[in-house]
Write a protein that binds this DNA or RNA. Structure first.
Lengths: 216, 216
DNA sequence: CTACAATGTAGCTCATGACAACATTCGGGT
DNA sequence: ACCCGAATGTTGTCATGAGCTACATTGTAG
């Protein structure tokens, strides 16, 4: 597509000079890749379409061919983010021990690893001004959520968690993770405390949601 | 310019006509008030200084006399937000029963009430790009934090919580609150579930952080 | 090989934040 | 009272970015 000329440029090879081909070829993918890179460290509101266009050596209006507006690019980033998060969680759970506490810790750690390494992206994923027709994002978000619910259900089956709707327990666990990510990313607490926080949260969760055995 | 005669006011009260006085008089306070109002529903990034100026019937450059730049206004909003949050929490705790579980629920409810009613403001308070010299915000944030720690310490004194550094336990509780606020404000879960979530989180916290009595 | 779709470009409008130069008002010192 | 400097507000300007339209180039299906 972008390589191996079929006679364009009438006899001269474009790469021989610094001439860019008129068509970038993979602009959409390149924009997403560059945007995600820009998102590391900076916030989403500092992401400029024109900036990306400049970086990719393309005119300021070119991105519009692939994303109707700025928000569309952000939505696409969020959607891709959920896919990456899902992959990371699945990988972590696949590599984890079989016993429930270990699996919970593995999932929590993997989530927070993703959340702290992709702070701005995470923010985008969850605050992406859900405009009326943002079904794709909601759809993409279901995968990680389902994973968490499966984990909870598994814990209940093993008798490690009290019975009941998995969502009821799962949402609070998810909220705690989200909150930890938030206070780390917001520099409220030092990143060094992350492991400590995860361990405390895991213990509280496992103790707080286990079945009632005799005493109150 | 907009007033023709140079002799305006000379013995007449300005409010008698619709002429605005050259000096607004309380521009800073009015800006903060208007900004906070604009923040309800919309996000902080949609807050425009020029918009505020227009609304207050003042020139587009006037706000600059009171806030060096946009971020300075946002910082001031965040600072005021922490003060309001502190007030709300203190009021809730003052009105609460003496027993620890009731006080925890009161604090959690008050926090989440503030958080959901001031979504954009809360976001501002915790993501306000902490620029190097943002000491004022950090200072303002300490009050609510101290309150939470006091509550934890009180629970420990009553034997309702395991001993240890209050922060260690408190941070996780705070994170959970923050996370619940985040998923409600981000429309991940329906607002109607808020009370349910609070109750579940409270139960898990009280059970998960209480002293170990005999069994593991 | 030709018409049309896809993709990229150039140039415009509009809004905003930041800045500078100037105007008006307020208040304190004499 | 009066004057002068400090606050506070105004107009004008610039740079940047989003979004739009008209146009140019390339890819491709028929």
């Amino acid at each position: 597509m972008l390589s191996t000329n079929t006679f364009r440029y009438r006899g001269t090879v474009p790469s021989a000079t610094d001439e860019r081909p008129y068509h970038h070829g993979k602009l959409r993918a390149a924009l997403l890749e560059a945007a995600e890179r820009h998102l590391r460290g900076r916030g989403a509101d500092e992401l400029s379409l024109r900036d990306l266009a400049r970086e990719l050596g393309v005119s300021h209006a070119a991105p519009r061919r692939h994303f109707a507006d700025r928000q569309a690019l952000l939505d696409a980033l969020a959607e891709a983010g959920f896919a990456r998060l899902d992959t990371a969680l699945r990988a972590a759970l696949a590599a984890a021990e079989a016993d429930f506490p270990a699996r919970v810790r593995a999932a929590m750690t993997a989530y927070l690893r993703f959340a702290t390494e992709n702070a701005a992206l995470l923010d985008l994923m969850y605050t992406s001004k859900h405009r009326p027709g943002a079904t794709r994002i909601g759809k993409a978000a279901e995968a990680p959520f389902g994973l968490m619910n499966d984990l909870i259900a598994q814990g209940q089956a093993q008798g490690a968690l009290e019975p009941g709707a998995p969502e009821r327990i799962g949402i609070v666990l998810f909220a705690t993770l989200q909150g930890i990510a938030s206070i780390i990313n917001g520099s409220i607490v030092k990143p060094e405390l992350l492991d400590d926080l995860v361990e405390t949260a895991a213990q509280q969760f496992l103790r707080g949601a286990r079945p009632l055995t005799g005493n109150s």
